[in-house]
């Protein structure tokens, strides 16, 4: 998994509550064989019209935000189905950090599994970041995971909470698999015992 240490980039404001995983990536894209390549379909129905032309009003279609790396959004982000395609699409677009007052549980977990940092902040702080993001591409924010801080384009500093274990995993690029691999000796020991006790397995 990609590490997440410190990120300075453009933040896109998506001032909507209850953004569900169907909006993030509709079901017709689940027949894919890849995790990658979903970025063009991120927010598909909001982003394109029926003729597959970009809707100019949608935030990620605006010139200032086409390379956004941070998303600032409303309450209950990522609700709906458990599809892991949602964080895959976000990451493939290039967004590595989502900031919102709250997240749906499964989506929140899925983010960490995919190298994305979801940050939950009190609504008034999200409002402040939303206004900062509104300023466009010259207003770059910095998210520092080590110090658990966000620096706005004006130099204002906010702090955030994150579970210590998850922080450790993101900082070091450790996914579940990486962590389990640290236990390789225990797995090997088990396999040696298994070969003796139940050789037919």
């Amino acid at each position: 998994m990609d590490k997440f240490e410190k990120l300075t980039g453009v933040a896109a404001p998506l001032d909507m509550i209850n953004v569900d995983t169907d909006m993030i990536i509709p079901k017709q894209f689940l027949k894919t064989i890849k995790r990658s390549g979903l970025g063009v379909s991120l927010f598909d129905e909001m982003r394109y019209d029926d003729d597959r032309n970009e809707k100019p009003d949608f935030v990620l279609n605006k010139p200032a935000y086409r390379n956004a790396e941070i998303l600032v959004a409303g309450d209950n982000f990522g609700c709906g189905s458990s599809r892991e395609h949602a964080p895959w699409a976000i990451k493939d677009f290039g967004i590595r950090c989502v900031i919102a007052p709250s997240f749906a549980d499964i989506f929140y977990n899925n983010c960490f599994k995919n190298g994305i940092l979801p940050i939950a902040l009190p609504p008034e702080q999200v409002d402040l970041l939303m206004r900062d993001a509104d300023k466009g591409e010259n207003a770059r924010m910095t998210v520092d995971l080590e110090n658990q801080s966000i620096t706005t384009s004006d130099g204002e500093v906010l702090t955030f909470e994150v579970d210590a274990f998850r922080k450790h995993c993101l900082l070091n690029g450790l996914d579940d698999i990486g962590l389990t691999m640290e236990k390789a000796p225990a797995i090997e020991t088990y396999e040696v015992t298994l070969a003796q006790a139940r050789p037919w397995v």
């Binding site: 892991e84 579940d176 698999i177 389990t180």
Partner: peptide
Amino acid sequence: IGTSEVEHVLATQTLI
């Protein structure tokens, strides 16, 4: 199991 877990089992033959 889910797709991330499929990958986990492929890589480690274990499941959390």
